[in-house]
Design a protein around this nucleic acid. Structure first.
Lengths: 247, 247
DNA sequence: CGTATATTTGAAAGCTGTCAACACTTGTGG
DNA sequence: CCACAAGTGTTGACAGCTTTCAAATATACG
């Protein structure tokens, strides 16, 4: 598992070697940041598009009263807010929760790429669409699932997303999360998140160590949470592919 | 208020007359559909990109147990799931809740436009980004706001979105919604939604008639719900505009 | 006019948040 | 290496919010 983004794009099976060469040029600019760094700041302008080579971040919004709601987790292989440069000010904050390695490129380069590399444009749109699907699932989760299954469902998603970024089964079982982060993501008080934790613990689905959650039984976790991974599937509509290759 | 999409794009101030001419060609294909029609079907392939000329729809996902969660409302001036054609199967359903007039165009045309009209491409990305912002706000709403303010916050958003699509103040005060729809959107039981309704009624924020909610006091509604409209702002980052016009 | 859909009510149960302490871990500086 | 501070995790009790159940009423539509 070297580069989650490339791994994901390979799965799509729409890019050719020239496309990957272009991606290589995007990979030039990289930087390492420590835990608790801000990548995007609410109410601030954003110039670059980032993508994650290593580490995790959270994307959240802060309320009037200081509460925060984590909107999504940002994993290796994810692009961070592809749209940010379009807007004057960001509406959410993106903050690292582990050490990270990021790649980044300018919005101008994005536009150029969308223009000159139609397959890459579709791939990027696919990434953005994927992101939207994850957000929608988060709405369903928070709106319609009870705390325990809500937590389990999120954990199942995060496992699956790590797998889709090329993590091995064993690696993907480990999530760099704690109680606070999960309660802020699930719309629960941290005290109730603790109750939920204990319950999942008791039925043998998870184990916890400092800042790491270990998924002990993926199959049961998926069944218990009614997790249906179809919204994460990495398949491009064949019609779209036909349009790309009008041979 | 003739065409909400054009109205919104005009506000962006990045398109020129040639761009609007291209849009005109996209406007050729239109159809009218009655209330309760399916525009996109969960688990079905999607070929066209739709946009709303008239009427409202809901975008929702159905759970294992038959519950549904409305993920977003679809209003005049909105594009319906710009990404749909990329995926093999839709992950949500879009269903009209009033009579509607839709425009539609093929995914091939979308790609071509993104390629040949960079300003339009940015405009479309802006639309998609706007959509994502609305989803994120919905997550915050459902995750971190209590029922009454949650409802008020959503109503304030919908008013604002109608205004941004060119509705007059008086028109935008009317929402074609009922109790069931709002409870499914807010993650509440319809019984609790009813309690909330009565409360908003009592403090004079709304009035209800058959399938229409009337907002009586926008200012108080916004204040009561801590509604901050900044996530809906129609401003493109100047840097982006500069990139488009490298004069 | 009857049926289906939507709204309304009251009561009870259940889930989740809040409060107030306390314990534990980690990282820092002496 | 120890002590302390800060952050995170843990507990129990209780209040409050929301769902569920059961049933009645209203409204729309054919």
């Amino acid at each position: 598992m070297s580069n989650g983004l490339i791994y994901r794009l390979e799965q799509l099976e729409i890019l050719n070697s020239e496309d990957f060469r272009i991606i290589d040029t995007l990979l030039v600019a990289q930087r390492d940041i420590p835990e608790h760094s801000f990548i995007i700041n609410e109410k601030h302008a954003q110039q670059y598009i980032h993508f994650v080579l290593k580490g995790w971040a959270i994307k959240y919004k802060t309320l009037e009263n200081g509460d925060r709601q984590i909107v999504n987790f940002v994993l290796p292989g994810d692009i961070i807010s592809i749209y940010s440069p379009i807007f004057l000010n960001a509406e959410h904050t993106v903050e690292s929760i582990t050490d990270m390695r990021l790649g980044y490129f300018s919005s101008g380069l994005l536009l150029e790429t969308m223009r000159n590399a139609p397959r890459l444009a579709v791939a990027l749109m696919w990434m953005a669409g994927q992101d939207e699907r994850v957000l929608e699932e988060q709405i369903v989760r928070v709106g319609r699932r009870r705390s325990t299954k809500r937590m389990a469902h999120l954990l199942a998603e995060l496992f699956r997303r790590q797998r889709l970024a090329g993590f091995s089964y064993e690696q993907a079982r480990l999530l760099p999360l704690n109680q606070l982060l999960l309660s802020d993501a699930l719309g629960l008080s941290h005290i109730h998140a603790h109750r939920v934790f204990r319950e999942l613990d008791k039925i043998g689905l998870i184990a916890r160590t400092h800042n790491t959650i270990e998924l002990l039984d993926i199959k049961s976790l998926v069944a218990f949470s009614d997790f249906d991974e179809s919204y994460l599937e990495a398949i491009v509509n064949p019609t779209m592919i036909k349009i790309l290759k009008p041979s």
